[in-house]
Design a protein around this nucleic acid. Sequence first.
DNA 1: TATCGTATCACAC
DNA 2: CTAACGGTGTGATACGATA
Length: 426
Amino acid sequence: MIRTIALIDVNNFYVSCERAFNPRLKHQPVVVLSNNDGCVISRSNEAKALGIKMGEPWFRCQAIAKQYGIQALSSNYALYADMSNRVMAILADFSPQQEVYSIDECFLDLTGFEKKDLLVYGKSMRERILKWTGLPVCVGMGSTKTQAKLANNIAKKNIKFNSICNLYKVVDEEKNHLFRAMEVGEVWGVGRRLTLKLKAHGINTVLDLKQANPTYLRREFGVVMEKTVHELNGTLCIELEEVTPPRKQILSSRSFGYSVRDYQSLAASITLYMSRAAEKLRSQGSLANLIQVYIRTSPFKLDQAQYSNSMTIPLATPSDDTRQLVKVALLALKEIYRPRYNYAKAGVSLSDIIPKSSIQFDFFASPENSSRSTALMTIMDKINVKMGRESIKLASEGFDRPWQMKQGSKSPNYTTSWKDILSAQA
DNA sequence: TATCGTATCACAC
DNA sequence: CTAACGGTGTGATACGATA
């Protein structure tokens, strides 16, 4: 059966979230910055029009920002995550099959809906989300995920589509016209490197790729590209994934607000990051077998001595106990730490992850210890959910943290903090 | 010869 | 005022080691 897949995506998501609560930002050039107020990661249309590039380091935009009064905000993930949940909940009402693909996008399976009704259906999604959350979305529809993505892209860029593009409704002649006008890099799965390579093979536009020979593409570019072309032509190769599978790797890393030289600060940061990673691990009911710790100086400071190192340590028995994971992580840190470098970033990773239900005790492990550990971690997690993050924590996470990342202009947590709501009113 | 482990690449957002 | 460049995650592929 021919399927119908929709992709719904919030326009300029982070900026739109900020605008929903601060109308003064509307019709203005606005950007949201990455952690540490480093790079531009979301732009209003006005900011895009001024030539601000995605991923541009913010300090490089100072001149133009001053000239045009571009407003920059630190990222407020608590706000974005909460808004995301609202959008996803609304969209879940439009189909029983939903794949939450990212913080601001989801696929819906609309197979079986009358093709002629799809535009109206998409329009009602857009209207409801706008009314209930204040966020603008675009909707793209086709017979595969790749087509839905492409349709969404078309809806975003061509005003005549009014934010909804149903590829079924676009006649072949116009489709060819649209696809010929789009760069091959616009296709989902075709990034910078592949764009270059494809162009070297004479494939420049979406239409070129759609018409290319799949067997030839597989030989020259690999399976992924072959699937992409089949999907472009309406043959489904990438299924909707409704249940998010447990993470196979959990990472927690952060750049420092100011460079760090001493072991103590690094140890505190590693403890902090590992605590976060362990929380994520427990929240998905898993155990990790492998720990990685890394530290590095700033690769951008060419005049300074560079050092980057990591260490991977396998655990004797899989664990989700923050205390144990931190202990091992600090052993690794001790091994790789070298004095007299300006460290810019540190991080940890948990991998070789297994479900907790499948735990096998080794010869020396004690089930009693394990259940005590679980009880402690569970209560810690509960306290932190109820009373707020870090209400209870390991002392080695540190208290004042002068190295913590910069967040110079974060908006209030409008939807998740009573304190912030009150101060936002004042 | 098939499989494994690991590093590297490429991509998405 | 300074100096200043994100974070998380997946899958494919390459390649030497291992069973």
